[in-house]
Design a protein around this nucleic acid. Structure first.
Lengths: 215, 215
DNA sequence: CATGGGCGGATGTGATCACAAACGCGGCGC
DNA sequence: GCGCCGCGTTTGTGATCACATCCGCCCATG
């Protein structure tokens, strides 16, 4: 564990740990309730506990991880009321983001979204939950990037992050290999420049999967 | 600086630093562009740089502080487009929070909000920007607490935090001692149970001050 | 055999150290 | 007098250590 190499590192070490863990959590690669230890995370990345501590604390601050009173951190197991609230936040933020992106959506973007949607369908067919969640969020992010609203997009991603572990069990629960129904409606509304239709389609798509949890 | 007694400490040390700094930033007690150093913050609290580092990193993660490429942290000096975006976020989140709180707003809550509003007016008369911002946010928080939506409220507070240093210069800029015009409209809508009116009043109150910056 | 106490390992927290990079100030050259 | 270079100081980063606490497991006891 001797610190020697420092090969022109673009980003700091804790940032690498942070990004790695963040991606794993957001895309449902970690099951709810899983415990994470400072020394364990550090060892996995060949680093000491210092960067691991900062990465974990940041994820806790963002609501991606839960910290018990004794300081142990683990991925959260949110209750239904919290899931519903996060879904409502997704709807609120993403409808606004889509609405702002609509006037700037070129044809190239719509084509790219359709391509991503095909990837989503592939992942559904392969029963790959992590790939599914990643592609699905990529579909949304591609649109929202056009909204030119970085703070709003960051908030939406924070919500995705908090929903990550839940989305895993959720999309593992729906066994039928059905791709998201509302993506086609989203693309159609984008093509038509139909703002009310887009808002409804986004809201439906975002709320869709989460609804069957409460039922 | 030797660690001696830790007698039933309710919260950890970095949390105390975090809360202190967070309050100072949110209520506009720190001017934009002010630099903060790890050793300086630690020394101010009689602690080493370790807890200071974690508190600062958390505030950076929440967007309350800006970190330069060299790692130095300072309070941000946001551009106008970012301020507008944050104001839009306030409107989006707080209208929803108010709408959810409306059916649960008892008479006692409305009375308390009126009392807080008098404090706001006092602070305006005393030309106390920090007291003004604190009382004003307390007015809003009292209402939103009734929404029973902790994640949404946390997001709204994060936006307040990011706007803190800006609000200071903003409310320092409007020299006339005028209390917020729309608080009365908010209270009236609450009394009447008028949801559309409440949504409009909240949106107006939130957007009011920020508008004159762009003008 | 069940249950509770105690002990050892695991874990988080804060302090301190070593080091590299960045900042700033003063002196030197023009 | 003005600008630029260089060095000392400041600052952030990661590693390591000391310590208190927590968790779990094993064994003794009823």
């Amino acid at each position: 564990m001797t610190s020697l190499k420092r090969p022109a590192d673009a980003t700091s070490a804790h940032d690498r740990i942070y990004r790695t863990l963040r991606a794993r959590i957001m895309y449902g690669d970690i099951a709810p309730g899983q415990a994470l230890t400072l020394r364990g995370i550090g060892r996995e990345h060949g680093l000491s506990m210092t960067p691991a501590r900062e990465a974990l604390r940041r994820l806790v601050a963002e609501g991606a991880l839960f910290q018990s009173v004794s300081g142990r951190v683990s991925t959260p197991e949110p209750g239904n009321e919290r899931i519903e609230e996060l879904a409502a936040l997704r709807a609120l933020l993403e409808v606004e983001l889509a609405s702002r992106a609509l006037p700037r959506a070129h044809m190239a973007l719509i084509d790219r979204m359709q391509s991503i949607d095909r990837t989503v369908a592939e992942m559904v067919a392969k029963r790959d939950p992590v790939g599914y969640i990643r592609a699905n969020l990529e579909f949304h992010r591609a649109l929202y990037l056009r909204a030119q609203a970085p703070a709003m997009l960051a908030m939406a991603e924070t919500v995705w992050l908090q929903l990550g572990p839940t989305m895993r069990v959720l999309y593992g629960r729906l066994q039928r290999a059905e791709p998201p129904r509302f993506h086609k409606a989203i693309i159609a509304a984008l093509r038509a420049g139909d703002e009310p239709g887009l808002r409804l389609a986004i809201r439906s798509d975002v709320t869709q999967g989460l609804r069957l949890l409460a039922g």
